[in-house]
Amino acid sequence: MDFLLGAEDDEAPSRRRAPGSRTQQRRSRRRRKRQRRKGYVATLFALVIIVGVLGGAGYYGFNWVGDVMIPKDYTGEGTGEVVVEINEGATASDIAQMLEDAGVVASARAFVNAVGAAGKSSSLQPGQYAMRKGMSAAAALTLLDPKNRVLNRLTIREGLRLSKIYTELSTATGRPVSEFRKAAKEDLGLPSYAKGRLEGYAFPATYEISPKQTPKQTLAKMVERFTQTAERLDLDVRAKQLGFTPRQIMIIASIVQAESGSTQDMPKVARVIYNRLGHNPQMTLSMDSTVMYGLGKYGIAATHADLKSTSRYNTYKYLGLPPGPISNPGEHAIEAALKPADGNWLFFVTVDPKRGITKFTDSDTEHQRFVEELNRNTR
Protein backbone atom coordinates (compact mmCIF):
# COMPACT_ATOMS: atom_id res chain seq x y z
CA MET A 1 0.00 0.00 0.00
CA ASP A 2 3.04 2.14 0.64
CA PHE A 3 3.87 2.26 -3.03
CA LEU A 4 0.29 3.22 -3.64
CA LEU A 5 0.58 5.94 -1.11
CA GLY A 6 3.89 6.94 -2.61
CA ALA A 7 2.29 7.12 -5.99
CA GLU A 8 -0.40 9.34 -4.66
CA ASP A 9 2.19 11.48 -3.00
CA ASP A 10 4.08 11.68 -6.26
CA GLU A 11 1.02 12.64 -8.24
CA ALA A 12 -0.25 15.13 -5.74
CA PRO A 13 2.21 17.83 -6.59
CA SER A 14 1.51 17.28 -10.26
CA ARG A 15 -2.16 17.79 -9.76
CA ARG A 16 -1.51 20.88 -7.66
CA ARG A 17 0.76 22.42 -10.40
CA ALA A 18 -1.65 21.73 -13.23
CA PRO A 19 -3.82 24.77 -12.63
CA GLY A 20 -0.72 26.97 -12.40
CA SER A 21 0.70 25.49 -15.56
CA ARG A 22 -2.43 26.28 -17.52
CA THR A 23 -2.30 29.89 -16.34
CA GLN A 24 1.30 30.19 -17.41
CA GLN A 25 0.40 28.74 -20.74
CA ARG A 26 -2.37 31.26 -21.16
CA ARG A 27 -0.02 34.05 -20.18
CA SER A 28 2.59 32.73 -22.57
CA ARG A 29 0.03 32.59 -25.36
CA ARG A 30 -1.02 36.16 -24.59
CA ARG A 31 2.61 37.29 -24.65
CA ARG A 32 3.18 35.60 -27.99
CA LYS A 33 0.02 37.22 -29.38
CA ARG A 34 1.15 40.63 -28.13
CA GLN A 35 4.58 40.08 -29.65
CA ARG A 36 2.99 39.00 -32.93
CA ARG A 37 0.76 42.08 -32.89
CA LYS A 38 3.76 44.33 -32.18
CA GLY A 39 5.70 42.69 -34.98
CA TYR A 40 2.75 43.10 -37.33
CA VAL A 41 2.35 46.76 -36.42
CA ALA A 42 6.09 47.37 -36.79
CA THR A 43 6.09 45.63 -40.14
CA LEU A 44 3.03 47.57 -41.25
CA PHE A 45 4.62 50.82 -40.09
CA ALA A 46 7.82 49.98 -41.94
CA LEU A 47 5.83 49.23 -45.09
CA VAL A 48 4.03 52.55 -44.78
CA ILE A 49 7.35 54.33 -44.42
CA ILE A 50 8.80 52.52 -47.42
CA VAL A 51 5.73 53.19 -49.56
CA GLY A 52 5.78 56.85 -48.51
CA VAL A 53 9.43 57.22 -49.36
CA LEU A 54 9.02 55.50 -52.70
CA GLY A 55 5.88 57.51 -53.43
CA GLY A 56 7.59 60.79 -52.58
CA ALA A 57 10.61 59.86 -54.66
CA GLY A 58 8.31 58.92 -57.49
CA TYR A 59 6.40 62.19 -57.21
CA TYR A 60 9.50 64.33 -57.19
CA GLY A 61 11.10 62.18 -59.83
CA PHE A 62 8.03 62.58 -62.01
CA ASN A 63 8.11 66.34 -61.50
CA TRP A 64 11.83 66.44 -62.25
CA VAL A 65 11.38 64.48 -65.47
CA GLY A 66 8.43 66.70 -66.33
CA ASP A 67 10.51 69.82 -65.81
CA VAL A 68 13.22 68.45 -68.07
CA MET A 69 10.96 67.10 -70.79
CA ILE A 70 8.16 69.68 -70.52
CA PRO A 71 9.57 73.01 -69.23
CA LYS A 72 7.50 75.34 -67.12
CA ASP A 73 5.38 77.73 -69.14
CA TYR A 74 2.74 80.31 -68.30
CA THR A 75 -0.59 80.41 -70.09
CA GLY A 76 -2.29 83.43 -71.58
CA GLU A 77 -1.16 86.92 -72.51
CA GLY A 78 0.22 88.00 -69.14
CA THR A 79 -0.43 91.19 -67.18
CA GLY A 80 1.13 94.59 -66.62
CA GLU A 81 3.95 95.92 -68.78
CA VAL A 82 7.71 95.59 -68.82
CA VAL A 83 10.10 96.93 -71.46
CA VAL A 84 12.88 94.56 -72.45
CA GLU A 85 15.83 95.29 -74.70
CA ILE A 86 17.46 92.88 -77.12
CA ASN A 87 21.09 93.77 -77.69
CA GLU A 88 22.93 93.50 -80.96
CA GLY A 89 24.24 89.96 -81.50
CA ALA A 90 22.04 88.36 -78.81
CA THR A 91 21.19 84.69 -79.46
CA ALA A 92 17.79 83.06 -78.88
CA SER A 93 19.20 81.53 -75.67
CA ASP A 94 20.42 84.95 -74.47
CA ILE A 95 17.00 86.46 -75.14
CA ALA A 96 15.23 83.54 -73.45
CA GLN A 97 17.26 83.94 -70.26
CA MET A 98 16.68 87.69 -70.29
CA LEU A 99 12.91 87.14 -70.58
CA GLU A 100 12.94 84.62 -67.72
CA ASP A 101 14.93 87.01 -65.51
CA ALA A 102 12.42 89.78 -66.29
CA GLY A 103 9.50 87.54 -65.32
CA VAL A 104 8.05 87.61 -68.82
CA VAL A 105 8.22 83.84 -69.37
CA ALA A 106 8.24 81.00 -66.86
CA SER A 107 11.42 79.41 -68.21
CA ALA A 108 14.07 80.10 -70.78
CA ARG A 109 13.65 76.54 -72.10
CA ALA A 110 9.97 77.16 -72.92
CA PHE A 111 10.87 80.24 -74.97
CA VAL A 112 13.71 78.49 -76.81
CA ASN A 113 11.30 75.67 -77.66
CA ALA A 114 8.72 78.18 -78.93
CA VAL A 115 11.34 79.86 -81.13
CA GLY A 116 12.42 76.51 -82.54
CA ALA A 117 8.83 75.41 -83.20
CA ALA A 118 8.08 78.67 -85.02
CA GLY A 119 11.41 78.73 -86.89
CA LYS A 120 11.95 82.37 -85.95
CA SER A 121 15.45 82.39 -84.50
CA SER A 122 16.71 84.61 -87.33
CA SER A 123 13.83 87.09 -87.02
CA LEU A 124 14.69 88.25 -83.49
CA GLN A 125 16.00 91.79 -83.97
CA PRO A 126 17.74 94.22 -81.60
CA GLY A 127 15.61 96.92 -80.00
CA GLN A 128 13.26 97.65 -77.14
CA TYR A 129 9.95 95.82 -76.82
CA ALA A 130 6.91 96.33 -74.59
CA MET A 131 6.12 92.95 -72.99
CA ARG A 132 3.93 91.69 -70.15
CA LYS A 133 4.82 89.58 -67.13
CA GLY A 134 3.61 86.00 -66.90
CA MET A 135 3.16 85.45 -70.64
CA SER A 136 3.19 82.13 -72.40
CA ALA A 137 6.37 81.61 -74.41
CA ALA A 138 4.38 81.61 -77.66
CA ALA A 139 2.69 84.92 -76.78
CA ALA A 140 6.04 86.48 -75.86
CA LEU A 141 7.50 85.42 -79.20
CA THR A 142 4.62 87.10 -81.03
CA LEU A 143 5.37 90.44 -79.34
CA LEU A 144 9.04 90.25 -80.34
CA ASP A 145 8.16 91.08 -83.94
CA PRO A 146 10.41 93.93 -85.25
CA LYS A 147 7.26 95.93 -86.03
CA ASN A 148 6.46 96.01 -82.31
CA ARG A 149 9.71 97.61 -81.24
CA VAL A 150 9.11 100.46 -78.84
CA LEU A 151 12.11 102.51 -79.78
CA ASN A 152 15.09 102.09 -82.05
CA ARG A 153 18.24 104.13 -81.66
CA LEU A 154 19.75 104.50 -85.11
CA THR A 155 22.91 106.40 -86.00
CA ILE A 156 23.16 107.68 -89.57
CA ARG A 157 26.82 108.22 -90.36
CA GLU A 158 28.20 111.28 -92.15
CA GLY A 159 28.58 111.02 -95.90
CA LEU A 160 26.07 108.27 -96.63
CA ARG A 161 24.11 108.45 -99.86
CA LEU A 162 20.33 108.38 -99.66
CA SER A 163 20.26 104.88 -101.15
CA LYS A 164 22.33 103.61 -98.21
CA ILE A 165 20.26 105.57 -95.68
CA TYR A 166 17.07 103.98 -97.02
CA THR A 167 18.61 100.54 -96.51
CA GLU A 168 19.61 101.29 -92.92
CA LEU A 169 16.19 102.75 -92.11
CA SER A 170 14.52 99.70 -93.64
CA THR A 171 16.63 97.37 -91.49
CA ALA A 172 15.90 99.36 -88.35
CA THR A 173 12.13 99.64 -88.85
CA GLY A 174 11.23 96.52 -90.83
CA ARG A 175 9.63 98.66 -93.53
CA PRO A 176 10.59 98.14 -97.19
CA VAL A 177 13.04 100.50 -98.90
CA SER A 178 10.35 101.38 -101.45
CA GLU A 179 8.30 103.10 -98.73
CA PHE A 180 11.19 105.44 -97.91
CA ARG A 181 11.83 106.18 -101.58
CA LYS A 182 8.18 107.05 -101.99
CA ALA A 183 8.14 109.19 -98.82
CA ALA A 184 11.18 111.16 -100.05
CA LYS A 185 8.98 112.62 -102.80
CA GLU A 186 6.46 113.99 -100.31
CA ASP A 187 6.55 117.32 -98.48
CA LEU A 188 9.23 116.84 -95.85
CA GLY A 189 9.84 120.48 -95.01
CA LEU A 190 12.91 120.82 -97.23
CA PRO A 191 14.36 124.32 -97.69
CA SER A 192 13.45 125.95 -101.00
CA TYR A 193 17.04 125.75 -102.28
CA ALA A 194 16.94 121.93 -102.04
CA LYS A 195 14.54 122.06 -105.01
CA GLY A 196 12.55 119.13 -103.66
CA ARG A 197 15.55 116.79 -103.64
CA LEU A 198 16.36 115.08 -100.34
CA GLU A 199 19.98 114.07 -101.12
CA GLY A 200 22.26 116.29 -99.06
CA TYR A 201 19.60 117.24 -96.50
CA ALA A 202 18.97 113.95 -94.64
CA PHE A 203 21.17 115.07 -91.79
CA PRO A 204 23.46 112.43 -90.25
CA ALA A 205 22.84 112.02 -86.52
CA THR A 206 21.46 109.56 -83.97
CA TYR A 207 17.70 109.20 -84.07
CA GLU A 208 15.10 107.56 -81.85
CA ILE A 209 12.71 105.80 -84.22
CA SER A 210 9.37 104.41 -83.12
CA PRO A 211 7.90 101.42 -84.98
CA LYS A 212 4.67 103.38 -85.31
CA GLN A 213 6.51 106.20 -87.04
CA THR A 214 5.86 106.43 -90.79
CA PRO A 215 8.71 106.68 -93.33
CA LYS A 216 7.62 110.25 -94.04
CA GLN A 217 7.85 111.17 -90.36
CA THR A 218 11.30 109.58 -90.11
CA LEU A 219 12.69 111.46 -93.11
CA ALA A 220 11.03 114.68 -91.96
CA LYS A 221 12.90 114.34 -88.64
CA MET A 222 16.18 114.19 -90.55
CA VAL A 223 15.29 117.30 -92.57
CA GLU A 224 14.30 119.07 -89.37
CA ARG A 225 17.70 118.25 -87.86
CA PHE A 226 19.37 119.68 -90.97
CA THR A 227 17.33 122.88 -90.68
CA GLN A 228 18.35 123.27 -87.04
CA THR A 229 22.02 122.79 -87.95
CA ALA A 230 21.80 125.22 -90.86
CA GLU A 231 20.29 127.86 -88.58
CA ARG A 232 22.96 127.33 -85.94
CA LEU A 233 25.73 127.64 -88.55
CA ASP A 234 24.00 130.66 -90.11
CA LEU A 235 24.22 128.91 -93.49
CA ASP A 236 22.22 131.41 -95.55
CA VAL A 237 24.16 134.50 -94.45
CA ARG A 238 27.63 132.94 -94.56
CA ALA A 239 26.99 131.40 -97.98
CA LYS A 240 26.07 134.82 -99.33
CA GLN A 241 29.24 136.31 -97.84
CA LEU A 242 31.27 133.78 -99.84
CA GLY A 243 29.35 134.61 -103.00
CA PHE A 244 27.54 131.27 -103.12
CA THR A 245 24.00 130.03 -102.54
CA PRO A 246 23.16 127.70 -99.63
CA ARG A 247 22.56 124.95 -102.22
CA GLN A 248 26.06 125.40 -103.68
CA ILE A 249 27.56 125.28 -100.19
CA MET A 250 25.77 121.99 -99.57
CA ILE A 251 27.09 120.57 -102.84
CA ILE A 252 30.62 121.61 -101.86
CA ALA A 253 30.13 120.18 -98.35
CA SER A 254 29.01 116.84 -99.79
CA ILE A 255 32.17 116.66 -101.94
CA VAL A 256 34.32 117.66 -98.97
CA GLN A 257 32.70 114.87 -96.94
CA ALA A 258 33.30 112.28 -99.67
CA GLU A 259 36.89 113.30 -100.48
CA SER A 260 38.37 113.94 -97.02
CA GLY A 261 40.42 111.36 -95.17
CA SER A 262 39.79 113.07 -91.81
CA THR A 263 37.94 116.01 -90.33
CA GLN A 264 41.27 117.87 -90.08
CA ASP A 265 41.63 117.72 -93.87
CA MET A 266 38.16 119.06 -94.61
CA PRO A 267 38.97 122.81 -94.62
CA LYS A 268 41.94 122.18 -96.97
CA VAL A 269 39.86 120.03 -99.32
CA ALA A 270 37.25 122.81 -99.35
CA ARG A 271 39.98 125.30 -100.28
CA VAL A 272 41.09 123.13 -103.22
CA ILE A 273 37.48 123.11 -104.50
CA TYR A 274 37.23 126.90 -104.25
CA ASN A 275 40.62 127.35 -105.89
CA ARG A 276 39.64 125.16 -108.83
CA LEU A 277 36.29 126.87 -109.25
CA GLY A 278 37.98 130.28 -109.39
CA HIS A 279 41.12 129.28 -111.29
CA ASN A 280 42.04 131.11 -114.51
CA PRO A 281 42.06 129.79 -117.12
CA GLN A 282 39.11 127.81 -115.91
CA MET A 283 39.79 124.25 -114.92
CA THR A 284 37.34 121.45 -114.20
CA LEU A 285 36.65 120.41 -110.65
CA SER A 286 37.86 116.87 -111.54
CA MET A 287 36.58 115.02 -108.46
CA ASP A 288 36.41 111.23 -108.64
CA SER A 289 33.67 111.13 -105.99
CA THR A 290 31.23 113.03 -108.21
CA VAL A 291 31.93 110.73 -111.17
CA MET A 292 31.32 107.63 -109.06
CA TYR A 293 28.08 109.09 -107.73
CA GLY A 294 26.79 109.75 -111.23
CA LEU A 295 27.54 106.13 -112.13
CA GLY A 296 25.97 104.75 -108.96
CA LYS A 297 29.31 103.26 -107.96
CA TYR A 298 31.54 103.46 -104.90
CA GLY A 299 35.29 103.96 -104.67
CA ILE A 300 37.98 106.61 -104.28
CA ALA A 301 39.45 106.42 -107.78
CA ALA A 302 37.55 106.54 -111.08
CA THR A 303 38.89 104.44 -113.95
CA HIS A 304 39.53 105.71 -117.49
CA ALA A 305 36.25 104.06 -118.50
CA ASP A 306 34.45 105.88 -115.67
CA LEU A 307 35.81 109.23 -116.84
CA LYS A 308 34.05 108.78 -120.18
CA SER A 309 30.69 109.06 -118.43
CA THR A 310 28.30 111.63 -119.91
CA SER A 311 26.58 112.18 -116.54
CA ARG A 312 26.39 115.80 -115.39
CA TYR A 313 28.16 114.55 -112.27
CA ASN A 314 31.32 113.94 -114.34
CA THR A 315 33.29 116.95 -113.09
CA TYR A 316 36.22 115.95 -115.32
CA LYS A 317 34.04 116.68 -118.33
CA TYR A 318 31.88 119.61 -117.20
CA LEU A 319 32.92 122.89 -115.59
CA GLY A 320 31.65 123.99 -112.23
CA LEU A 321 29.78 122.11 -109.56
CA PRO A 322 27.66 119.00 -110.18
CA PRO A 323 23.84 119.38 -110.24
CA GLY A 324 23.35 118.50 -106.57
CA PRO A 325 24.90 117.06 -103.40
CA ILE A 326 26.48 113.61 -103.77
CA SER A 327 26.06 112.59 -100.13
CA ASN A 328 24.60 113.78 -96.86
CA PRO A 329 27.37 115.75 -95.14
CA GLY A 330 27.78 116.25 -91.44
CA GLU A 331 28.37 119.46 -89.53
CA HIS A 332 32.18 119.35 -89.89
CA ALA A 333 31.97 119.23 -93.67
CA ILE A 334 29.39 122.03 -93.82
CA GLU A 335 31.54 124.19 -91.54
CA ALA A 336 34.59 123.48 -93.72
CA ALA A 337 32.65 124.56 -96.83
CA LEU A 338 31.70 127.78 -95.05
CA LYS A 339 35.20 128.38 -93.68
CA PRO A 340 37.86 126.86 -95.96
CA ALA A 341 41.52 126.90 -94.95
CA ASP A 342 43.90 129.48 -96.40
CA GLY A 343 46.16 128.10 -99.13
CA ASN A 344 46.88 127.98 -102.83
CA TRP A 345 46.48 124.21 -103.27
CA LEU A 346 45.00 122.91 -106.49
CA PHE A 347 45.56 119.19 -105.94
CA PHE A 348 45.28 116.66 -103.17
CA VAL A 349 45.74 112.90 -103.04
CA THR A 350 44.85 110.50 -100.23
CA VAL A 351 48.14 108.65 -100.53
CA ASP A 352 47.34 106.17 -97.74
CA PRO A 353 43.60 105.37 -97.66
CA LYS A 354 43.96 102.95 -94.74
CA ARG A 355 45.44 105.59 -92.47
CA GLY A 356 43.59 108.50 -94.09
CA ILE A 357 46.76 110.40 -95.03
CA THR A 358 46.13 113.13 -97.61
CA LYS A 359 48.76 115.40 -99.18
CA PHE A 360 48.13 118.80 -100.79
CA THR A 361 50.04 120.77 -103.43
CA ASP A 362 49.72 123.46 -106.09
CA SER A 363 52.25 121.73 -108.32
CA ASP A 364 51.14 119.35 -111.04
CA THR A 365 54.53 117.58 -110.88
CA GLU A 366 54.25 116.97 -107.15
CA HIS A 367 50.67 115.90 -107.67
CA GLN A 368 51.85 113.15 -110.02
CA ARG A 369 54.33 111.97 -107.37
CA PHE A 370 51.47 111.75 -104.89
CA VAL A 371 49.49 109.65 -107.36
CA GLU A 372 52.45 107.27 -107.72
CA GLU A 373 52.66 107.00 -103.92
CA LEU A 374 48.96 106.13 -103.77
CA ASN A 375 49.45 103.43 -106.43
CA ARG A 376 52.30 101.90 -104.43
CA ASN A 377 50.24 101.84 -101.23
CA THR A 378 47.20 100.27 -102.89
CA ARG A 379 49.02 97.85 -105.18
Rank of each mutant, 00 (worst) to 15 (best):
I50D: 05
L162R: 01
I95A: 01
S163P: 02
A305Q: 15
I95K: 00
L295N: 02
R181C: 08
T43D: 08
E373S: 08
K354F: 09
Q228Y: 01
K38A: 10
E11H: 12
G134I: 01
L374H: 11
D9W: 12
R238K: 13
S107K: 07
L374T: 04
I326Q: 07
K268P: 03
S136T: 14
L144G: 03
L188C: 11
R22S: 13
R175F: 08
A220W: 03
A341M: 06
T315F: 10
S327E: 08
A137D: 01
Y293C: 02
I357W: 14
T303E: 12
T173K: 05
L124K: 06
S363I: 14
S363T: 09
Y60P: 00
G39S: 13
V272E: 04
E158T: 01
L47E: 08
G294Y: 05
Q217R: 00
N328C: 08
Y313W: 03
G116L: 09
R34I: 06
V269A: 13
H367S: 04
E85K: 15
A57H: 10
P176N: 00
L144N: 07
S363H: 07
I252G: 09
R355F: 11
G299P: 02
D362T: 07
R31C: 12
A253D: 04
T155Q: 04
V83N: 06
G243I: 12
E179M: 06
K185F: 06
S21F: 00
R132W: 02
R247H: 15
L190Q: 00
M135W: 03
R27N: 00
L319H: 12
Q368H: 05
G61L: 01
G39D: 12
D101E: 09
A106D: 09
I249Q: 02
S210D: 00
W64S: 04
I156V: 14
G174E: 02
S123F: 06
K195R: 15
K216P: 04
D67S: 10
E100M: 15
I300Q: 05
L190E: 01
Y318S: 05
A90Q: 06
A305K: 15
P19E: 05
K72P: 06
K182W: 04
G116M: 06
M1H: 12
M135I: 00
D10M: 09
R17C: 07
K120W: 07
G78Y: 01
Y193W: 10
L44D: 01
E168P: 02
V105Q: 00
A337E: 04
A117F: 09
G127K: 03
P71C: 08
R238Q: 15
I357P: 12
T173D: 10
S311A: 12
Q24E: 09
S192P: 11
Q217P: 02
V84S: 08
P325M: 14
L321N: 00
S286N: 14
R109W: 10
E179T: 15
T206M: 10
F244V: 11
A202S: 08
A7H: 10
A258R: 00
R271S: 00
H304M: 14
A337K: 00
G6R: 05
D362P: 01
A205P: 09
A301M: 08
L143P: 01
P329L: 15
D306K: 11
A138W: 00
V51T: 15
H332M: 14
S286K: 14
F62N: 09
A336H: 06
